[in-house]
């Protein structure tokens, strides 16, 4: 591995992050002692078998879930010290989301969905930036359609545009291509990739698809709630190899 030293400031840093459910003998550690940095302007993928804690990690990073131990620093803000209201406003102002499905509010048009975080914050969108984002996702002629009138791929691109429009500190994507065919997937991933390259956006994506992970600069592998390995400048093949290796090692361990 020839991981380059991290030159940029970290967008997110975690220290000894842990998330457990239940207590006593029924206690389950979904995450245990995860310390990791996510560089600014970098596209990081998180992978791992189901139950490995990758979604829990993403939720903790994004302020949707509260870790039971450790710290999450978003820039210089410690998420674990924020109350519910502050967390909500932080998600609104500094974080962008793309979920696997059901990303859009069905009663709002594509454009209204895109500007929703800004509207909730009572902020005016930066028209030039909005135009750029819309141009990039290629939805200019579908802006006034309701989600029900858009294809799955178009809906995910609207979601991406919404995630970007407030120029968030980080965009989190949770299996953004899980429900899409390969062509639509390529569109969405290409768009996320460009946002990193062209706009310097920081993106953290959870996926189980090696092809999707190949779009990232770096892949983190999780297993049993722990950070297991990482891969810089991945290709679909190298990701697949690593996954196989992890599988067999965990099979041996199990």
């Amino acid at each position: 591995m020839t991981a380059p030293p991290v030159q940029q400031a970290a967008a997110i840093t975690t220290f000894g992050l842990g998330r457990s459910y239940g207590s006593g003998p029924t206690r389950i550690d979904a995450l245990a002692d995860v310390s990791v940095e996510f560089g600014q302007g970098r596209f990081t993928a998180i992978m791992g078998p189901s139950g490995s804690g990758k979604s829990t990690l993403l939720h903790c990073l994004a302020g949707l879930d509260r870790p039971t131990s450790g710290q999450v620093l978003l820039g210089d803000v410690d998420l674990t010290r924020l109350d519910e209201k502050a967390l909500t406003h932080l998600r609104r102002d500094r974080i962008g989301f793309v979920f696997q499905a059901f990303n859009l509010v069905p009663t709002l048009t594509a454009l209204e969905n895109i500007t929703l975080p800004l509207d909730l914050a009572n902020r005016k969108p930066d028209q030039a930036w909005l135009d750029v984002v819309v141009q990039t996702v290629g939805l200019k002629d579908r802006l006034h359609h309701k989600p029900a009138e858009l294809s799955g791929g178009q809906q995910q691109r609207v979601a991406c545009a919404r995630a970007l429009v407030s120029r968030p500190h980080v965009v989190f994507a949770d299996e953004p291509t899980g429900n899409l065919d390969s062509r639509a997937s390529a569109d969405v991933l290409g768009f996320l990739h460009r946002s990193v390259r062209e706009f310097g956006q920081t993106v953290v994506m959870v996926t189980h698809d090696p092809t999707a992970a190949a779009y990232a600069d770096r892949v983190l592998f999780l297993a049993d709630g722990r950070l297991h390995e990482e891969l810089a400048d991945p290709t679909a093949e190298s990701v697949l190899d690593t996954m196989k290796r992890l599988d067999s090692s965990s099979a041996q361990a199990g």
């Binding site: 909500t88 998600r91 609104r92 102002d93 974080i95 979920f99 990303n103 509010v105 909730l120 919404r162």
Partner: peptide, 16 residues
């Protein structure tokens, strides 16, 4: 429920 969850996730606070 899901829609409300989404709205909360992308930053709608309780008063809103």
């Amino acid at each position: 429920t899901r829609e409300i969850g989404l709205l909360r996730a992308i930053g709608m606070d309780r008063p809103q």
